[in-house]
């Protein structure tokens, strides 16, 4: 598969950057002429992944969040969000809806939302080294698109 365009950024894990990260990625993906629903799905999924880096991976300290977005042939978007934080001991458990280590005001559905709002989600993690989340989403072609 051929990469048509790509975008990389690194940002500090300040919570004020949650809004910046999802807006930047949504703006980059806008070149594929997505529907409002597709853009909203991407914004939400990215917000979940970036918030996980801030709330769980780095907790009280400030670390770096590494983001790459690649656009492939056929309007396929792959978003990779990586941290070098604490890592996840049990990914399967972390991905269970309602499971959270984030206290009573976190819903524990971040991974479930990423899964629902993208076509494919892959999470890999190593305790003490960090976590990588890769999300795939294909933007549907419109009638007037050329093949």
């Amino acid at each position: 598969m051929k990469v048509i365009n790509q975008f990389k950024m690194q940002l500090d894990s300040h919570s004020a950057n949650e809004s910046f990260a999802r807006t930047a990625i949504a703006t980059f993906v806008a070149q594929l002429d997505p529907t409002l629903e597709e853009i909203s799905d991407i914004r939400t999924a990215v917000s979940e992944a970036v918030t996980n880096c801030i709330v769980h991976a780095y907790k009280e300290k400030i670390g770096v969040i590494y983001i790459t977005v690649k656009i492939y042939d056929g309007k396929k978007v792959v978003i990779r969000i990586r941290d070098k934080g604490c890592g996840i001991e049990n990914i399967e458990q972390a991905m269970q809806p309602m499971f959270t280590t984030g206290g009573p005001d976190r819903a524990g559905i971040g991974f479930a939302v990423m899964q629902s709002f993208t076509d494919k989600l892959k999470v890999s993690s190593k305790v003490g080294y960090g976590t990588t989340v890769v999300m795939h989403k294909t933007i549907a072609s419109r009638q007037n698109d050329r093949a």
Binding site: S47, E48, T51, P104
Partner: peptide, 16 residues
Amino acid sequence: TFMDSSGIGLIMGRFR
């Protein structure tokens, strides 16, 4: 104009 699962946490907490 936008909400992620933090908003779900907000609703669940207020439901309590």
